[in-house]
Design a protein around this nucleic acid. Structure first.
Lengths: 170, 170
DNA sequence: TAGGTTGACGATAAGAAATATCCACGATAT
DNA sequence: ATATCGTGGATATTTCTTATCGTCAACCTA
């Protein structure tokens, strides 16, 4: 029942990148500075998000990261799975087979009922995470957060954003 | 996004104890044997369940563990919280405050929107875990599992069960 | 136009921290 | 006196965090 700290950094980074316009990018070092994190640490998670096709990375001196698709199509589940891996939280170790009774393996073809129940609950968790979209979080932030924070955040984004090159035809 | 291994052992133990009748107890060493686990290891989790008032413990040579209430009132959430602790999976580190902008703390009285979204999803998870009752899992096991496994499990329970003393007036 | 320099991402490995696992001792009731 | 649970601590394993090196593309200089 624990989510790694990296998830928080990943979500904040994605939210910051959602504020960029027109395919602009922001380097990982700027994101690390924005949240007071070690660049090495944040880079690792940004790379995980890139591998999961949530972010795109552009190498080179004018490069950085940007969202790979619109924030409406990025959910908290996408980010959590990218950072934590796809394995379910409850992994059945099949300890029921360790009984001294020595029952034949054919008796255990039926899946473990405990595992099934835990996975049912986890499906509900994942559905709820999938319902939380990055776009909603950003919109809520713009509307409800303290104006000073919103202003500072937008200023930071504008300062470190790097506009997409015009003639680039990737 | 990880649940500790002890949760599986705790649930299996509770399920086994649910098979006992009339306030009978079973020692922790027998439960450890049933699942092929180290007694020291399982004892620690059984003690956590006892501290959470899910199990009752009886000391002395004829003692052991039994459920503290009927299986209908024991949910997977109860067991998970007892073993893993009550803290939510996502703990907001308030990294939004670490911005170099140095904004006054009064701007952050509004709770972090990301934290709010993650806690919403986690509430759904906990609700789903609370809906999975120990009684349902045991009933499903009796009905659907391989007869050989059910028979062996009941035999083990009968062999290691210790009936409640008649005159005990705790 | 060609080549070096710069600043970005990507991958691997080492250190630190947290967790899981286990053991020894003390308390309690039979 | 024995068999059980309860508590604290020591060890091992895993995970988290950080640092170092390698790769790639744009810019500056000849």
């Amino acid at each position: 029942m624990k989510l790694s700290e990296g998830v928080e950094a990943a979500i904040h980074s994605a939210a910051m990148l959602a504020g960029l316009e027109g395919g602009a990018t922001m380097p990982g070092s700027a994101l690390a500075e924005a949240f007071g994190l070690s660049p090495s640490y944040l880079l690792k998670h940004l790379q995980a998000l890139t591998a999961a096709r949530i972010l795109e990375s552009v190498p080179g001196p004018t490069g950085g990261y940007r969202l790979a698709r619109v924030p409406e199509k990025i959910s908290m589940l996408d980010i959590v799975l990218a950072v934590e891996g796809p394995r379910p939280a409850f992994r059945c170790g099949e300890i029921r087979r360790n009984s001294p009774a020595r029952i034949d393996a054919s008796a255990y073809v039926q899946p473990c009922g405990i595992n099934a129940a835990m996975l049912r609950a986890e499906r509900a968790y994942r559905a709820a995470l999938a319902a939380e979209k990055l776009s909603s979080i950003v919109a809520e932030f713009m509307a409800d957060a303290d104006p000073r924070v919103v202003k500072a955040s937008c200023a930071f984004a504008a300062q470190h954003a790097r506009p997409q090159k015009a003639a680039s035809k990737q």
